[in-house]
């Protein structure tokens, strides 16, 4: 009974949140800057929680939240008040999250070509901790998970990661690509 009451309360809270966000976005599209700022603050927090649960306590979550807020801003004219806000928002969040994960390895490689990979790894989040927190990573096959942790979380280049694992660069590239595709599928199953 207690669990049912809790579920009922949480559903009511979600429905109220949905109505509030929908109203604020409608007012924002009509020119209400205050409503827009309040909406962005609130959904920014929700996005951060969602991304930390899926990807763990990693440094790129804040960048991802800001990219998602910008994407919401660019796409705001497509919000239809007759439809629910959450599916619209989370479709954008999932898209940007996958996009950032894909681009992440390349940018880090260009930023720190000279640094020793072990030194770079020590400066980033402990992959073991990241793994504990990251629901999305837990759904992957071990070789795909290791490939993503090394290239996207610890900043190893494909060459470095391939050498560590004793596989070819092509094989490592394929593991990263399949890992990202699998994460995309896992996030899509999330719904809203």
């Amino acid at each position: 009974m207690g669990i049912e009451r809790e579920r009922g309360t949480s559903e009511t809270a979600r429905a109220e949140e949905e109505a509030r966000w929908s109203e604020w976005m409608t007012r924002a599209n009509a020119g209400d800057t205050e409503a827009y700022a309040r909406l962005l603050e609130e959904i920014g927090g929700v996005m951060e929680q969602y991304l930390r649960r899926r990807f763990g306590e990693v440094d790129f979550v804040e960048d991802c939240v800001q990219e998602c807020l910008l994407a919401i801003h660019r796409a705001r004219t497509t919000f239809d008040p007759a439809r629910r806000f959450r599916p619209w928002m989370f479709a954008i969040v999932r898209h940007k999250a996958i996009d950032m994960l894909r681009r992440r390895g390349t940018r880090r490689r260009h930023e720190s070509q000279e640094a020793d990979p072990l030194q770079r790894a020590a400066q980033t989040t402990d992959p073991a901790l990241a793994l504990q927190a990251a629901e999305a990573l837990r759904g992957l096959a071990p070789e795909q998970r290791d490939a993503l942790l090394m290239t996207k979380y610890c900043g190893y280049s494909l060459n470095e990661a391939a050498r560590r694992e004793g596989v070819s660069v092509t094989a490592m590239k394929s593991r990263v690509h399949r890992g990202i595709r699998q994460i995309k599928r896992i996030l899509a199953e999330d719904g809203d």
């Binding site: 924002a28 599209n29 009509a30 020119g31 800057t33 205050e34 827009y36 700022a37 962005l40 603050e41 920014g44 804040e62 939240v65 800001q66 807020l69 910008l70 801003h73 660019r74 705001r76 004219t77």
Partner: peptide, 24 residues
Amino acid sequence: MGIDVRSRSELIRKIARDPAPDAR
């Protein structure tokens, strides 16, 4: 959009000030 921001709050402040889009 060329935004150079250091924090989420700054980003939100900047983009909230953008004019409302043409809905036609």
